[in-house]
Design a protein around this nucleic acid. Structure first.
Lengths: 252, 252
DNA sequence: CGGATGCTTCCGCTCAGTGGAAGAATCGGC
DNA sequence: GCCGATTCTTCCACTGAGCGGAAGCATCCG
């Protein structure tokens, strides 16, 4: 930046990212004044930078508002967090979905939370709260428990020190969850029973790469009382297939 | 930008977008010197801006290279080009894929080309050249023909004035293709027979929103000689479902 | 029509940004 | 291990891109 600023030290890059950061799930479309307010920038500054971002395709103009532009979508597709795992896993996930008609997830651990990389659902699948790019608690989701079971000790300790209740069935006692995590490591899969969302149960298994658990895949079903073995087997087969292909890729 | 520049008039925003533009499908990971070269920036400038982009999560550092960061992936998910159509269509597309096991596409017209918004393939689906975010010729793909059939006259004229051959079966005569487009508008679906890719045929139908064709969905199959009616019916049902839900959304 | 709201433009000022040069770090061949 | 090549990191005098309050314009709505 150059002179006459109200925020000395702020950079253009920082301002640009603040403008882009004004957009989120709840605010996918924004008028200029809202962008300026949410990015904490004076209106003419926001106006100038937004105009430039539009010219570069990073933002787009609609009738009344601004939205994230196609260029960012294209660039985002290149992010390894999205591309490698998702591309490798997608065909397997599609197969699981085709076989079970259930919602299928691919997720990674993001600090103390689950980050969903992919989600596939048909119209008759159980409604779930996850969406691609969203995060949920590790301890209350199937994929989250898998990732927690295989997380470093300090991460596990941090998560176990605070287990917020989501539904009346959410596990909030550290000892009880820790026993489950041991079981998960032993039997190779995790389950939840309405711990994240009423009416939704899940089964999940780990995905390995070069001997490390790098992701988890899971399905959401209305109940675990039927066909649990079939779902679990399908997940294992898919996880093994994904793991095999990931292992064949050069180290990251 | 400020003094001492080798490119007077260049802005920081433009340089940032040039840096991000250094990445593409063929170069998803790049060392600093390659980024600088591809973005046409001096090394120290690139180094400084890349460092800042990494701090903001727009780029990420791997062992040896830089990659697009998670923040851009998250932002890209918010782009309407990706979110509204894809989210509405995804469950229907999953259903088609589950029923047919074929590769399923969602695409829009992008000027004189097809832009693929979504693609679902199982491991036993016919190999296709498309990928999410990629563009292909309108005249040689099923979804492309649908979009071309419903495109404005000037667009159609522009496309028909140059029909590059992709395979020996690609239609390169404007008159012949135009007859097909009329047929497509009449019967409500399009087909291709190895016009884009040998061994791959496709069926596609339009998706409407508020009376306008805004997208196309299609499947890729090894041959049209079997079950063409079943695939076409499934596509129509899905397209109607998607169109109905799109029509229920507020005007964009 | 008039007030409220949202936006667009202006331009003197200035500090964030610049990049050649130098130095450091890493790599690979011998 | 040495040395040359390659890649990267740092420095800082210089300067022009960026700034934003104020003014003006556009639109909306009662």
């Amino acid at each position: 930046m150059a002179g006459n600023t109200s925020t000395p030290g702020a950079t253009v890059a920082g301002r640009i990212m603040a403008i882009l950061g004004a957009f989120d799930d709840h605010h996918p479309r924004l008028p200029l004044s809202d962008i300026a307010r949410r990015a904490d920038l004076p209106l003419p500054t926001a106006h100038r930078l937004v105009g430039e971002l539009v010219r570069h395709g990073a933002l787009a103009r609609t009738d009344d508002d601004y939205v994230i532009g196609r260029r960012l979508w294209e660039l985002g597709l290149l992010a390894p967090i999205a591309s490698t795992l998702r591309e490798t896993a997608a065909p397997f996930l599609h197969d699981i979905h085709a076989a079970t008609r259930a919602t299928v997830h691919l997720a990674v651990r993001d600090g103390h939370q689950v980050l969903y990389l992919e989600r596939m659902a048909g119209r008759d699948s159980v409604p779930v709260v996850s969406s691609v790019g969203s995060v949920l608690p590790l301890h209350a989701t199937g994929v989250g428990k898998v990732l927690l079971a295989h997380a470093p000790d300090d991460v596990r300790r941090g998560v176990l020190s605070s287990l917020p209740r989501v539904t009346p069935y959410t596990i909030t006692q550290p000892g009880r969850l820790n026993e489950q995590l041991k079981q998960i490591r032993r039997v190779g899969y995790a389950t939840t029973v309405e711990e994240m969302s009423l009416g939704a149960c899940s089964v999940a298994t780990p995905v390995h790469r070069h001997g490390q658990v790098v992701a988890a895949i899971g399905v959401v079903v209305p109940t675990l009382r039927r066909d649990r073995g079939g779902v679990t087997a399908a997940l294992h087969v898919a996880a093994q297939g994904i793991s095999r292909q990931l292992g064949a890729l050069p180290p990251a």
